[in-house]
Simulated scan of single mutants.
Amino acid sequence: MEYETVDLDEESGSVLILDQTKLPGKAEMIKLRTAKEIWDAIYLLKVRGAPAIGVAAAFGIYVLARRTAQKETDFDSFYNSFKKQKEYLDSARPTAVNLSWALNRMDQVCRQAHAEGKSVAQIVDRLGREAREIKEEDIRVCRAIGENGLSLLKPGDGILTHCNAGQLATCRYGTATAPIYLGQERGYHFHVFADETRPLLQGARLTAYELYSSGVDVTLICDNMSAMVMKNGWVNAVFVGCDRVAANGDTANKIGTSVVATVAKRYGVPFYVCAPTSTIDLDTPAGNEIKIEQRPGREVTEMWYKEPMAPQGIKVFNPAFDVTDHELITAIITEHGIARAPFWKSLAEMKNVTV
């Protein structure tokens, strides 16, 4: 885990990412230079996890703006290209709010610098500083989420997590795994159960990989085993990440999260969602208004098999995310504190905290 999930190579004018589609078999850093390469990397899950997607998008639009500025020194022409590239990158994945959040933040910086009379070259320089700040913020935010999450745990606890909301989904610490990493540093000796997370196996390929590599006591389980480990009393808390939080506290996370939340409710296990405030979308009143990304059927029928494991031509329903009802959520852990019901009030307060 000495690799950076997302980084910037100023010399070559490219975004550097750890290609997560190659894990756990191979740790490979790749360079993204063009808008198509950046879009593909986000859509094809070479970089994934809401915070990491946001950082990659910020670095990406900066790299593209720097290249545009070499040809377009007039602001109107430069900004026209900037807007097209921003909209193109924003179309890569619809559910994770951090993608549009980061791109809109970069757009605001661009327009503000122009309003201040800055040249195109100066605007590009400011965009670079903002992109680097978004990455540094992510690291600070994840650590703060970890501290807040750790306050809900005690040494020796069993923790279950779904998908990958770890270091690989962020720039460091992760969101749902941040309390685990901080506890590891402080001798808490947690035991973690990682759901494999069908159909893309982020829990098996990524969460199990990074926790095991870091010396955490982790056990991999199939998704349909979560009820058994909870019923056995082996799980004291569930920690998951999320890609979007609606104003009422409904959360969109990797498909299967709502199942885990329902099971946790049945067995009285606290269910915590770890969410940077950048994922809180107060403009979306409830989860039924969150657009859910639909993925190709081959991810279910053949992606991980030598031979297809379903009848040829079978219909496949493959949503990337589901929505967990706020009534199933014990608390939402942010960098500014822990939000509890009524979420419409506590989330608005968290969102409006200034630092």
Score class of each variant (00 low, 15 high):
residue 108 Q to K: 13
residue 223 D to Y: 12
residue 171 C to M: 14
residue 49 G to Y: 04
residue 285 P to F: 01
residue 26 K to Y: 10
residue 73 T to Y: 09
residue 92 A to L: 05
residue 306 K to G: 09
residue 13 G to P: 11
residue 62 Y to G: 00
residue 307 E to W: 05
residue 46 K to P: 08
residue 326 H to Y: 12
residue 139 I to V: 15
residue 221 I to P: 04
residue 346 S to I: 10
residue 327 E to C: 02
residue 192 V to M: 09
residue 291 K to F: 06
residue 40 D to M: 15
residue 248 N to L: 15
residue 218 V to F: 04
residue 348 A to C: 08
residue 321 F to I: 09
residue 143 R to Q: 12
residue 207 T to I: 10
residue 242 C to I: 00
residue 32 L to Y: 15
residue 250 D to Y: 08
residue 77 S to V: 15
residue 253 N to W: 02
residue 154 K to G: 11
residue 127 L to E: 04
residue 58 A to S: 15
residue 280 I to Q: 05
residue 54 G to Y: 06
residue 36 K to F: 04
residue 243 D to H: 13
residue 222 C to P: 12
residue 350 M to I: 07
residue 348 A to N: 10
residue 190 F to G: 00
residue 137 E to Y: 10
residue 139 I to R: 10
residue 247 A to K: 08
residue 308 P to Q: 03
residue 146 G to S: 05
residue 187 G to N: 08
residue 190 F to I: 00
residue 150 L to D: 04
residue 234 W to V: 01
residue 188 Y to C: 13
residue 348 A to F: 14
residue 304 W to Q: 11
residue 7 D to W: 07
residue 233 G to C: 07
residue 258 S to C: 03
residue 305 Y to I: 13
residue 56 A to G: 01
residue 328 L to P: 06
residue 348 A to K: 14
residue 58 A to C: 15
residue 118 K to P: 07
residue 300 V to C: 07
residue 343 F to Y: 11
residue 61 I to K: 04
residue 170 T to H: 05
residue 264 A to H: 03
residue 162 H to F: 14
residue 276 P to W: 04
residue 236 N to V: 11
residue 289 E to V: 04
residue 89 L to C: 07
residue 90 D to Y: 06
residue 187 G to T: 08
residue 144 A to W: 13
residue 97 V to T: 11
residue 329 I to D: 07
residue 148 N to S: 02
residue 265 K to F: 15
residue 27 A to L: 10
residue 341 A to D: 08
residue 195 D to C: 03
residue 31 K to P: 05
residue 321 F to W: 15
residue 51 P to I: 02
residue 322 D to Q: 09
residue 230 M to K: 06
residue 108 Q to G: 03
residue 320 A to Y: 06
residue 181 Y to L: 09
residue 306 K to D: 13
residue 153 L to P: 09
residue 154 K to N: 13
residue 353 V to P: 10
residue 244 R to H: 13
residue 78 F to G: 02
residue 264 A to C: 01
residue 233 G to M: 11
residue 31 K to S: 13
residue 332 I to L: 06
residue 183 G to A: 12
residue 47 V to E: 05
residue 340 R to N: 12
residue 325 D to V: 00
residue 21 T to Q: 11
residue 277 T to L: 12
residue 244 R to Q: 11
residue 20 Q to N: 07
residue 204 A to E: 06
residue 167 Q to G: 00
residue 100 S to M: 14
